[in-house]
Every structure is written in C-alpha cells, then in structure tokens.
Amino acid sequence: MSSLATMPKDSNDVSTQRNTSPSFSSWVDNLLENGMGTGFLSNFNAGMTLPAVNIKENAEEYFLEIAVPGMKKSDFNIDVDNKVLSISSESKEEKEVKEENYTRREFGYASFKRTFTLPDTVESDKISATYKEGILSVHLPKKEEAKEKPAKRISVS
C-alpha cells in the first residue's frame, strides 16, 4: 500500500513524492475511510438475524405478524410476563449419511427472541397465535374499556 504525500524539499519548493512507509495512524485512517470500520461493524452480527415484524392496530385489537418461514408450530415459545410479550424459537437440524467409504455429518442451528412491552390496554389472558405459510400471527385483543367508542352527539338542554 502506498500513498502520495507532499513533502517540502526546501522552504520554497513543495513536490509530490511516493511515501513507501505510511504511519500506523494513516493506515488506520485509510482502513476506516475505505469502509472496513463501519462496514465491518455493521455486518458483525450478520449471522444472527431477527425476523421482520409488522404491528397493526384497529379499534378492537393489535396484531403482530412475524415472518418466520420454514418453521413448525411446535418451534415457537410465546410467553407473557409482567406486560412483556416474548416470542422465541430454537431449531436444530442434524443429518448423518454413512456410506461405504465416508461419513458426512451436517448440522444447523437457528434461534431468535423478540420481546414487546404490552400497553395496559391489552387483555393479556386472551392473547392467541396462529402460524400459516411462514407467518406467525399474534392476536392481542384490547380491554373493553380501551376499545374506541363511536362518536356520540350530545344535545344541549
């Protein structure tokens, strides 16, 4: 790696020369400027991904839709504790093929955990979930007193 630097030959003349041994600080600066710093750090956890979540609300309830394709219903753990909804999954897969001259073992592991602080308006005893076509849907009904009421006209007497 080389860089160009301006070096004064005398007090009046400045020319461009090849700097064959950059200082450590300029090497680090170049490394960071070329994207290794922030690019490396932003991709550090690339092996761990959290599933995408859509949160919807209407007058009666909240809905969570979580994209988790390739899972089974039995892979999910859904818990409510102190107004915190936790959704997690852990799956392990192991394959072993034994042939006459070799043995091949493959394994995989995937897990995630998402937590959501529930508002006071959620009826936590009535939370339900379904899993269909790679989407985990969690239904969070609102308490009766929290549901929106239609507008009402009040007459003046």
Rank of each mutant, 00 (worst) to 15 (best):
T117A: 15
A5I: 06
S21W: 04
E106L: 09
G35A: 10
D10N: 08
V28A: 15
E90L: 05
V68A: 03
S15C: 09
K95D: 11
I78C: 01
E65Y: 02
A46M: 03
W27V: 04
N54R: 06
G35I: 13
V53H: 05
T6G: 06
I66K: 07
G70E: 06
L50W: 01
N82W: 09
S11V: 06
L4H: 15
V84Y: 09
T49Y: 08
E100S: 15
Y109I: 00
N34L: 02
D79A: 04
D79Y: 03
S111W: 00
N101P: 03
N82S: 13
A46W: 09
S21H: 10
G35P: 07
M71Q: 04
D13L: 09
N43V: 02
P69Y: 00
A52C: 04
S86F: 01
T6Q: 14
P119W: 13
G39F: 12
Y102Q: 10
V80P: 15
R104G: 08
T103K: 12
L31G: 09
Q17G: 05
F76P: 01
N19I: 00
N101Y: 12
R18Q: 09
K73M: 08
M7Y: 15
V53M: 14
T115W: 02
K98F: 06
F44Q: 09
K73P: 00
V14R: 05
T49K: 15
S88L: 01
E57H: 05
K56F: 12
R18E: 14
V97H: 08
M71S: 06
I55T: 12
T103N: 04
T6W: 12
S74N: 06
D10F: 05
K56W: 13
L64W: 06
R114Q: 15
L85I: 01
A110I: 00
Y109N: 08
E99W: 02
M1Y: 10
V68I: 00
F44E: 10
S42K: 15
N12T: 08
P22D: 01
S2L: 14
V14P: 00
F63A: 02
M48H: 04
R18H: 10
P22E: 02
A46P: 05
E57M: 05
Q17Y: 10
T103L: 05
K56E: 14
D10A: 04
N54G: 08
S21V: 01
T16A: 13
G35E: 13
V14C: 01
F63Y: 09
R18D: 12
P119H: 07
L4G: 14
I87C: 08
E96M: 15
G47N: 11
P69M: 00
P8L: 11
E106N: 14
A67M: 04
G70H: 08
M48Q: 12
R114E: 13
Q17F: 09
L118H: 08
Y102L: 11
Y62F: 10
S21T: 05
D13T: 10
P119T: 02
N101I: 06
S25T: 04
N12F: 03
R105N: 13
V97C: 11
A67N: 12
S88W: 00
M71F: 07
E106V: 09
S89P: 03
E65N: 02
S26Q: 13
F24L: 07
